[in-house]
Amino acid sequence: MTDAPASTTTRTALVTGASSGIGEAIARELAAAGVFVAVHGRNAERTTAVAASIEEQGGRAVPLVVDLSAGPAEVRAFATAATEQLGGHVDVLVNNAGVYPGGPTESLSDDTVDALLATNIRAPHVLVAALAPSMASRGSGVVVNIGSWMARVGVPFMALYPATKAAVEQLTRAWAAEYGHRGIRVVTVAPGATATPGNADSADVLAAMTAGTPAGRPVQPVDIARAVRWVVSDEATFVTGGTIDVDGGIASTRMR
């Protein structure tokens, strides 16, 4: 992993949206690599269960429950609580939490628009603003933003969600430039069509979407988690400011 502060022996990570799916896989993968993980979720029961399971398997984890679509003050308080629970420092921030409602543009409700912007863009921005200064003071830190293959293609009836992920890619570029000279790396990991508990009822749709890709199947959460584990490791110390696609080729190829 990247160099930790001299005064600590264990690296720490805050993973948002880690009570299931991609975020859970990331939390488990990082914990298996020896990282002390704060598991965030909106559902207390699921979030606590993931953290407890990681502990039972020999890792270190604490659950943190908050709705990231709440106001900025609540998100800042969450960042403070995560720092305290992780022993006073957050070495890795994984901005994974996101909402992805779709539908015709003209019928997307104002509340849905607000939730998309608050969760997918504002919350990562507030968390980086709250946590990056401390990382910079230690001269070390990694921010991983979870993007999407949809950020660079046009998808009917799904305009705003991909736009939020395109914004995430731009935030990655800007934050890498802003914080790089202070020891912080910032990278986007962009999943393709991924099979998660949240879209289990769309398994046939995912299979059809990915049948013509080089991989020929949907992405699994562990595929994303392994990429994140590498991104935050010493092996990736010269990787910053860009997007790593873990999508089976869906965004760049069309085989049939």
Rank of each mutant, 00 (worst) to 15 (best):
D234F: 05
D3K: 13
V128K: 11
I250T: 08
V65L: 09
V92C: 07
T12S: 11
L108K: 04
A207E: 15
V39H: 01
P5M: 10
T105E: 07
T119I: 09
G103M: 08
A200S: 15
V232I: 13
M158E: 02
V39Q: 03
T213P: 15
G241R: 08
S140I: 08
A159Q: 07
G139Y: 11
M150A: 13
A215G: 06
T8A: 09
H181N: 07
I184T: 06
P104V: 01
H40M: 06
P124C: 10
P162C: 00
A115Y: 09
H181D: 15
S107A: 11
G212S: 13
T172W: 04
P162F: 00
Y161S: 00
L171S: 03
A225R: 10
S233H: 10
V128W: 13
S140Q: 14
V126S: 02
A129Q: 15
I244L: 15
T240Y: 07
T83P: 14
T213H: 12
V222C: 00
Y100L: 02
G242F: 08
T188K: 01
Q57F: 02
P162G: 00
G249V: 10
A70M: 03
A136Y: 05
M150T: 09
S148D: 09
T9L: 12
R229G: 10
G242D: 15
V189F: 06
S202G: 05
L160W: 06
Y179E: 02
P5D: 13
A25T: 01
R229P: 10
G102F: 12
A215E: 09
M255L: 15
G248M: 05
N145C: 02
G58C: 04
A203P: 08
A132H: 13
V142A: 10
I54F: 05
V92R: 02
T47H: 12
A208N: 15
G212V: 02
V144Y: 06
A73V: 14
K165R: 02
R28S: 04
E169H: 14
Q85R: 14
L160S: 04
T12E: 08
